[in-house]
């Protein structure tokens, strides 16, 4: 959380102005990605806990779930899921959790807009 976290000015707000935008920046020696998901900013480390891939260079996608009818496959969370470019593991950008196993997760950092700057709290 923000308490105790350090504030890092990492980008200009216009770099992640639109849903789907992302920037990958250096925060204290660690690569961190800032994503715009439906107007809100989220930051994850650019690191996959599976085999250390650059997770946040993968596609922003959705994910498949079974519909309430028990039959249909529905595609949900469009633009909220980053898919690792190496092995396809999917993480919810808004929480850092793997979409299929919540025990597998990356840190999720809060992000603020401060004036024209993007600030990562980490």
């Amino acid at each position: 959380m923000s308490d105790g976290g350090r504030r890092h000015r990492v980008a200009r707000a216009e770099e992640v102005a639109e849903p789907g935008d992302r920037v990958i920046v250096d925060v204290g020696g660690q690569e961190v990605a800032v994503f715009n998901v439906d107007g809100d900013l989220h930051a994850l480390p650019n690191f996959c806990p599976h085999q250390a891939a650059p997770l946040c260079e993968g596609d922003l996608t959705g994910r498949m779930v079974v519909g309430e009818d028990g039959w249909s496959w529905e595609y949900v969370q469009r633009g909220e899921v980053v898919t690792c470019p190496w092995h396809g593991w999917k993480f919810d950008v808004t929480t850092g959790e793997n979409v299929k196993d919540e025990a597998v997760a990356v840190p999720h950092y809060e992000v603020e807009r401060d004036g024209g700057d993007v600030v990562v709290l980490r």
Binding site: M64, V66, G88
Partner: peptide, 10 residues
Amino acid sequence: YLELSDEVPG
């Protein structure tokens, strides 16, 4: 399951 997760939504 983790790599092809869109094929195992159930």
